[in-house]
Structures are given as structure tokens and as C-alpha cells.
């Protein structure tokens, strides 16, 4: 009997509470009682709060979320690994190195016949970013643009390629933007043109990059550098590289890079007699990471070398470089043809 009474009382309390919840929520949406007054009160409070919180958020954001990783400059400058070098005779691939990253090579994108293909040419740097500057004041950004335009003219003559440049003028362009353009233009292949600067070596160095991880110890060291002072651990970094590695068309980019490197080096060596083959290398350049199609970055010359800088100031030499790049691109595409 007592427990029944107790139960009844509890039922009553429960009912009161449930109605309370309902009425409370009606008030929230302004359907109940004195909605207006409380609104205004909350509004004032809200404005104040928003101000305080934005401040807090700024502070928190500043020391918590901002890692150094996505600052583009650091990515291109800091993450280039120079451990893997081939000698002039050794242009063959070191397959086991990246076998781990090619579990998923994806479909070959070199399937083409009479179809028009889009080639994206990316003149390095531009605008506020001059790139490297030679001792006589020659700027990388001007050379890359000039060579890119010459390359375009040459490729257009074949009548079967659609050519897009990431920039037509001396304008600043973020790496992200370049990648967006490649994607938006449905580029089939992507080549970024740069010039080296290695003051300690009085020689002309030719090298071509495609995206990839370097040897593990280097990545660890670089990652540690990059992550110093942040809350990010090494494992975060490694995961990211690994994932990127698996998503890219590595095999294709590598073939493309070898094709470019071979044509550049052999011809420049023939032309000038002074060229060192630094080979094909892997580096996590942002500009190569983002593009899903075969993409390479070619260092076509070395501005720290005075002879080279002089030569670069002649139109004929720049035309030659464009010629070699063209040959590299055609070679690569032709090989794809013969695979069919």
C-alpha cells in the first residue's frame, strides 16, 4: 500500500518535470511566456560573450591549431630531400624504394589516341616571389615564365595538345592556387619549371623531382625540424606522407620525371659540355602533392653558376631548354602510346 502511494507520488513528480521540460523548450523557441524580454537580454549577453570568445579563440588558435606544416614556403624549401642521387649512367629506377608506396598504382592516365590532351605548365614563382636571383640579378621567376611560354609555342605546333599556363604574367600565385588550376583545367600532365641555386658548387646541376617520401631517417629528421615547438608528433607527419604517397600516380610521375631529366641532361651536356646529372628525386612539394595526374618539377638550370646565368640571358639558350622539355614531354607521351 505504501509503495503504491509512493509510486503514485513519483508519477506525479515525473509528470510535473516532463511538462516543465516541454514548457521550457517552448520558451526557447519563443512560443511561451515572456520570450521577447529574455531574448533581448540574451542578445546583449551574446554580443559581449562573442567578443570575449573571439579573443579567446584567437589566442587558442594561435598556439594550438597552427602548425608549421601548411606554410607553403617551408614546405617547398624545407622538405626537399637530397639523399637520393643517381650518377649519369644510372638513370634506371630504384624500384624497391617506393614499392611500398605503389600498392595502388591506379589506372594509367597515358591512354590517348587522337584525343586532345591538356598539358599544364607551371612557371615557378612570380610576382612578389622572385625565386632565386643570380649574381648579375637574373630572376628565376622571369626565366621560368619565358621558358614556359616558349614551351607552349612549341607544343602548340603539334596541333594535338591543349596548353595551359598557371600564370601568363609576373604575378604572385600560391602553390595551392596552381594546384587548383591544374584540377580545374582537367590537366592530363603537369610540369613545374624552376631553376636551382647551389653556391657551393660552381657547376650546372640538372635535376627533376616527383612527389614521394625520402629515406625514412631523413623524413624523421625533417619532420622533427618542421614540428619543433608545435604539438605535432612524428607519427602524424609520417602518416600524412604515407597517405599522400598512396593516393598519387607515383609510377607515372616517376616515368615522366625520368623522361624530362634524360632529355634535359643529355642535351644540355651536349650543348654546353658542363652539366651534372643530379637525377630524379622524390620530395614532398606541395605543388606535386595536390595534382592527381603525372606531375614533375624540373630544375632546368643553376643560377648560382655565372656561365649558366649568362647563357640564360640569351633567347637561344632558353629556346633550347624549352626544346629539351618538349622532347621530354613527347617522349613520355609516346612511351604511353607504345604501351597501348
Amino acid at each position: 500500500m505504501i509503495s503504491l502511494l509512493h509510486q503514485k507520488r513519483e508519477m506525479r513528480v515525473r509528470k510535473t518535470i516532463l511538462r516543465g521540460v516541454y514548457e521550457d523548450n517552448l520558451r526557447i523557441i519563443g512560443k511561451g511566456g515572456n520570450g521577447l524580454i529574455s531574448h533581448r537580454y540574451y542578445y546583449a549577453k551574446k554580443v559581449l560573450l562573442t567578443l570575449c570568445l573571439s579573443l579567446v579563440a584567437l589566442l587558442v588558435h594561435a598556439n594550438y591549431v597552427t602548425g608549421p606544416f601548411f606554410q607553403e614556403r617551408q614546405l617547398t624549401a624545407g622538405l626537399i630531400t637530397r639523399d637520393y642521387r643517381t650518377t649519369p649512367d644510372e638513370i634506371s629506377a630504384k624500384t624497391d624504394d617506393y614499392r611500398a608506396f605503389m600498392k595502388n598504382p591506379g589506372s594509367l592516365s597515358r591512354v590517348f589516341g587522337l584525343e586532345v590532351r591538356t598539358i599544364m605548365i607551371d612557371p615557378g614563382h612570380g610576382g612578389a616571389d622572385s625565386g632565386t636571383i643570380g649574381k648579375m640579378g637574373t630572376r628565376e621567376k622571369d626565366l621560368t615564365l619565358d621558358i614556359a611560354k616558349r614551351l607552349r609555342e612549341r607544343l602548340l605546333k603539334h596541333g594535338k595538345y591543349h596548353i595551359v599556363l598557371t600564370r601568363e604574367e609576373d604575378t604572385t600565385l600560391s602553390l595551392n592556387r596552381r594546384v587548383t588550376m591544374a584540377i580545374a583545367n582537367k590537366a592530363d600532365i603537369f610540369i613545374s619549371i624552376h631553376l636551382n641555386y647551389l653556391p657551393s658548387k660552381p657547376i650546372n646541376i640538372i635535376e627533376t623531382y616527383y612527389f614521394g617520401p625520402s629515406s625514412d631517417s631523413k623524413i624523421l629528421r625533417l619532420a622533427e625540424q618542421e614540428n619543433a615547438g608545435s604539438e605535432y608528433g612524428l607519427s602524424d607527419f609520417r602518416d600524412m606522407i604515407e597517405k599522400l604517397g598512396r593516393t598519387l600516380k607515383l609510377q607515372e610521375s616517376r616515368d615522366f620525371a625520368y623522361s624530362i631529366q634524360k632529355n634535359l641532361f643529355v642535351n644540355i651536356k651536349k650543348e654546353t659540355g658542363n652539366a651534372y646529372n643530379f637525377g630524379v628525386k622524390r620530395a614532398p612539394f606541395v605543388v606535386l602533392l595536390g595534382v592527381e595526374v603525372p606531375s614533375v618539377l624540373a630544375e632546368v638550370s643553376c643560377l648560382s653558376n655565372r656561365d649558366e646565368e649568362m647563357k640564360m640571358n640569351t633567347a637561344s639558350h632558353r629556346e633550347n631548354i624549352a626544346n629539351y622539355l618538349e622532347a621530354g614531354i613527347l617522349d613520355y607521351l609516346r612511351k604511353g602510346d607504345s604501351k597501348l
Binding site: K46, T50, L53, S54, V56, A57, V65
Partner: peptide
């Protein structure tokens, strides 16, 4: 872009 929406127990409104 990481967000913990109720940091300090309150939605950062306006954000």
C-alpha cells in the same frame, strides 16, 4: 581545421 565546438562549455556563437 579542427574545432571543439563547446570549448569552455559554450558554443562560440558568432563563430
Amino acid at each position: 581545421d579542427l574545432c571543439r565546438p563547446l570549448e569552455r562549455g559554450i558554443i562560440k556563437e558568432g563563430i
